[in-house]
Simulated scan of single mutants.
Amino acid sequence: MSFPNVYAHRKVAETSAKSCDICFKPSTSVLITTDSKDFFYICPSHLKDAGFCTPKIDQAAVEARRKKELDDEVARVKKEYEEKQRKKKEEKEKKDKEKKDKDKDKSKKDKDKKEEDDKKDKPEEKEAEKLTAAAAAEVAEEEEPRLFELKSAFYQQRLGRKRQIEMAKRNRERLQDPTFFPSVPKNLP
């Protein structure tokens, strides 16, 4: 009948919002036990209240996420470095071509093409910045703790409520059982 005092924070659809158990405002956040025996709706602001619950942080998951972020950053820096080296090599080749090429018209056309290429590269850089910003926002969302431990008073309240529900269910079953009530005496006195 008892369940662990470890609750996972989940979100539900806006259409499934129900009242918070604390303040009775509509909420889409749900705290559910890891074994799915108990759940209740709660406002996200209550999750930040130290008097209500404490977040349980999984150190291994935090370290794994940091390692992944570092690996992604290293890969991104390597890619940028390779692109810069490639661009430098292309510019050097263009300069060598321009030196060989004595025709001024051709050199002007090459400069125009180079300017156009630079203009084309800028939108790609903006897209890359947008993607990194979106990834940063995603990481910020993941940093929010997912597991919580209720304070003892609230946990005892949840246990009491669960016991009351179990008792009410048992009483209903007993009342429907015909052997629960005494039978009419069959003997004469």
Rank of each mutant, 00 (worst) to 15 (best):
A153P: 00
R86L: 10
C23M: 03
K130D: 02
D21E: 05
A75C: 08
D35H: 01
R170A: 07
Q157Y: 04
P145E: 10
V62K: 10
P178D: 04
K56F: 09
E138F: 07
L131A: 14
C53P: 01
E63H: 05
E125T: 12
A136M: 14
A60W: 01
T33S: 07
Y81S: 06
P185V: 13
E142F: 01
K92C: 03
R76A: 12
S27V: 03
A153C: 07
G51C: 11
A134L: 15
E141T: 14
Q156P: 00
K88E: 08
D35F: 02
F40G: 04
N5H: 03
A50H: 10
K109M: 14
S183Q: 07
K11R: 13
K68C: 04
A8K: 13
K48N: 08
E138I: 03
A136I: 15
K79P: 03
K113V: 15
K95P: 00
I57C: 03
A75Y: 03
A153G: 05
G160I: 07
G51E: 09
A17S: 05
A50N: 10
R146M: 08
L147I: 08
A135T: 15
R86P: 00
K92V: 08
A136V: 15
E149H: 12
R76V: 08
K108L: 15
T54P: 00
E166K: 06
D117K: 15
K109H: 06
P4Q: 13
K99G: 08
C20G: 05
A134C: 07
R146E: 13
E129L: 12
E142W: 01
A60Y: 02
C53N: 11
D101Q: 14
A168W: 02
F52T: 11
I32K: 02
A168H: 02
D103Y: 15
E138H: 08
R146K: 14
Q176W: 01
T34A: 07
K68L: 12
E115G: 11
P185K: 13
S2W: 01
N5A: 08
V6G: 02
D177V: 09
S27G: 04
V30Q: 04
E98A: 15
K48L: 06
F180N: 03
C20I: 02
P145L: 13
T34R: 12
T15M: 06
T34F: 00
D118H: 15
